[in-house]
Design a protein around this nucleic acid. Structure first.
Lengths: 290, 290
DNA sequence: TGCGAGGTTTCCACTCATCGGAAAAGATGG
DNA sequence: CCATCTTTTCCGATGAGTGGAAACCTCGCA
């Protein structure tokens, strides 16, 4: 009766704990964690002990837990994300100086955009995103830009897990998303009105790697007035070009002295997927057996 | 013979794998990971499968692995670190504009400084640090600033695990570090010549939270010429003050509508440690039993 | 085309790390 | 002081995790 195994992997339980922390709930007590994660108190307690030993969580004097700095360290080693973010930062600052709203850099991860960096302005319109946050590819201008790099068939996959409906304009059908993507392909930029919040408009352009593949989306969130996005797009385009140049400089060609084992450039986004598994989240990296 | 348990926790094995990735080795194959981590190939393979399912690592088409974006997401939820970083960023940009070298923001974690943000300049002097990187408190100007907040006894603990010797000037004795700390306390800034690299000088000032506790160190790395650090210190001091003001604005007083459960402000650095366990890395959060 | 040397994936019998109910020990608040 | 809630410790049962071995790929070379 006691000590019944659950059939769940250790790792996912640890993550279950880490996942109950959020921006709105950064400090949690043992019993809160136990309740939120659905894990028995004693189990949560033991796991938290371990996590603390590994500095993945920290314990405050009042006995509440919070996520630890080790996570920050690990994230910093994420390749591409880090390099790209650092390379893009100066250019983003330029955009920020010109637009004075929210400037964001996002990459694709599965069906979502993950925001790598975000510069904000005090008086800027609302914006739901945070650094490290994610949002459906269908529901953001940067997402539309990233989608434009994928083959047609990939779009359908987006709807497999449903798209959260933030506002009445959040696209819910394949046709809506396809239309947006078509426009991105035609005009080289995305303009998305009120997808996440009715008063916000997203404008985004692609950032391309040395081989032309779309590596990230660079965008701003501005008030959703009817103004011509042209000037904003121009600013973004210039910044994107700057990032692309820096990326090229950072590119170490094969055989170059800097090309330490494993350190050479690789596309952030795998653009060479073939079948229908664009958003495949499973581990199956392999060939299908008979 | 086969299937002998190791006595090691699951978590630490997973982390062992994540830890073999570095900035210099961002892309690794199964056998590389197996060798570097010291785990048997089959074990590493299985663990990597799991890690991939949880998006903590990604697999590229050429079968090599790299750290996944989920880590970025988790890190973004780290409280304090994120808020502080975002708040400090504009001020750091100001410093960067004036000094045009490396501008860094670091907090204390155990015996180390962890760098939360870093702005660099193309022509700047060498600097070993990266965002998310860590370095002994004894071996950096920001470290000296952070040390100055701790009680005397804490200094001795620093040497418990030894201090890496980057250059001949990296402090190796308690007396050396104590002298540096005394100077920080007296002058409100740290100047460290050639601690990590002979040609580099670190200059740093403290950033204080709403209650006066030292929350972070703000610093620059400049060439190690004999110039008067005064003007640089003035720039840093102004920026630190700006950050402190923003922190105060971000502070949500108890009872304030924004004080959602768990979202209220807490000091980033626990300044209320009492005994000798300042750098305690173990999980023992508690009182000693009889 | 065949062969050898890697790397990668699958298999599976053996165990110990993990599980969680229970009870003890603290905290909190009347 | 007692009632309630949270945190910590304990411990017998058990299946998740283990890793050697073998099969399977993938090269490069002759």
């Amino acid at each position: 009766m006691s000590g019944t195994r659950t059939g769940e992997s250790m790792l996912s339980r640890h993550l279950r704990i880490l996942d109950v922390f959020g921006v709105d709930s950064a400090f949690l007590t043992l019993s809160q964690i136990s309740r939120r994660s659905g894990l028995p108190v004693s189990t949560a307690h033991r796991l938290l002990d371990e996590l603390e030993r590994e500095r993945l969580v920290e314990r405050l004097p009042d006995r509440s837990y919070r996520l630890g700095l080790r996570l920050w360290e690990l994230a910093a080693r994420t390749p591409g994300a880090l390099g790209l973010r650092e390379i893009a930062l100066p250019m983003m600052q330029g955009v920020q100086g010109a637009i004075r709203q929210h400037t964001q850099l996002g990459v694709r991860d599965g069906r979502d955009v993950v925001y790598l960096e975000r510069l904000s302005h005090r008086d800027a319109v609302v914006s739901a995103t945070v650094v490290g946050g994610r949002i459906s590819l269908a529901a953001s201008a940067i997402g539309h830009v990233l989608l434009s790099a994928l083959p047609e068939e990939a779009l359908a996959d987006l709807f497999a897990s449903g798209i959260p409906r933030y506002t009445k304009r959040t696209p819910q059908t394949l046709a809506e998303v396809a239309a947006a993507v078509t426009e991105v392909r035609a005009r080289g930029r995305a303009v998305a009105d009120g997808l996440v919040h009715p008063d916000a408009r997203g404008i985004a352009v692609p950032v391309r790697g040395p081989e032309g593949e779309i590596v990230a989306g660079l965008g701003v969130v501005v008030p959703n007035d009817g103004r011509d996005p042209g000037p904003v797009v121009a600013v973004l385009r210039r910044a994107a070009t700057g990032i692309e140049e820096s990326l090229r400089r950072a590119y170490v060609a094969p055989g170059h002295p800097h090309a330490l084992a494993g350190a050479r450039y690789r596309p952030l986004i795998n653009s060479s997927t073939s079948s229908m598994e664009y958003f495949d989240e499973r581990g199956r990296a392999g060939q299908d057996r008979e």
